[in-house]
């Protein structure tokens, strides 16, 4: 499994890990890892420590998560991006929508 999620002890935060390529082939996995969660987390953390590549459909999936998490009121952090991944996020100006660390 290349994508898995882990809620914090109090269920307030959900961390999503993405391993390998983040593209359309994993969209079902990505969706189910935040849709099939019992609690309703207030914050999401996407850990891209092991993410090697990100394409435009992945950006679309991030927007879906943002929508799911409350749109403009959502709190989503993206952390541990490699330079390549960060560059793609920056070109698209996604730092206006997500907290990229």
């Amino acid at each position: 499994m290349s994508i898995w999620s882990q809620p914090s002890m109090d269920g307030q935060e959900l961390t999503i890990n993405i391993k390998g390529r983040f593209d359309f082939s994993v969209h079902q996995e990505f969706r189910s890892c935040y849709e099939n969660v019992d609690d309703d987390p207030r914050e999401y953390v996407i850990d891209m420590k092991d993410t090697t590549y990100l394409d435009s459909s992945a950006l679309g999936m991030l927007l879906l998560l943002r929508d799911h998490a409350g749109g403009d009121k959502s709190h989503i952090k993206i952390k541990n991006c490699s330079n390549d991944v960060k560059k793609i996020l920056t070109i698209s100006n996604f730092e206006q929508l997500f907290a990229i660390q």
């Binding site: 927007l63 403009d72 920056t90 070109i91 698209s92 100006n93 996604f94 206006q96 929508l97």
Partner: peptide, 17 residues
Amino acid sequence: IGSRNLPLGVLDNDFFK
């Protein structure tokens, strides 16, 4: 010349830069 804006169709016009 670098990208300064979000792509088209992401945000409502109220937030569109």
